[in-house]
Amino acid sequence: MMALITEKKGCVMSNRDLEYYQKMIEGDKQSLEAIYDKYEKLLYSFVIKLSSDHSLAEEVLQEVFIKLWTQKAKYDNTKGKFSSWIVTITRYTAIDIIRSKKESVSLEEETDVPEEQSESVEDLVEWKEKSSTIRKALDQLSDEQRKIVDLFYFKGCSQSVIAKECDLPLGTVKGRLRLALKHLRKNLATVKGGIRDA
């Protein structure tokens, strides 16, 4: 039942996103503003997770919304949800900007999340729904698996860097990563199931 409601909400939301997006393409500034308002905090928080750099996060967001507005990046609704698309664009933009600055943040350093907030993720239903389950699912991974996911996805490291950091032969990185991600997916299903039962 719960899953059904969630599905429905997600569906309604992405339809509205599509509506905003289409109006934005026609040059409607209010629609871009609406998209901005909806995703500002998620994208900002996401980039900070990727880079732990506040000034960079603002730069990344600016670049993302320029890409959106000037249609250098185009959303195709047949290929998935708008939210997935905009976080993907944000991730690549962040990786790009981080790389171009060559400010190699030491991988050993624990990323501390500054000015962390209370629980409320009021802005975005999808975030609210998913955040705690994903965090729980990530917590259930072994340290090694969490590390490989972190290096690959959040730090955007190359295969050879991951091999070095995790002390793995180059050829095994992909297999380990896929295993970790599948494990994560399984955890996610269990966590969700747990909530449903409760």
Binding site: Y36, T90, E115, S120, S131
Partner: peptide
Amino acid sequence: LPFSSEPVDPPEGMKDRVLGAV
């Protein structure tokens, strides 16, 4: 995975700066 991000409040005036630049 992006949804695992801990919420962080954007700085004051970021919206004006970002959209202004856009």
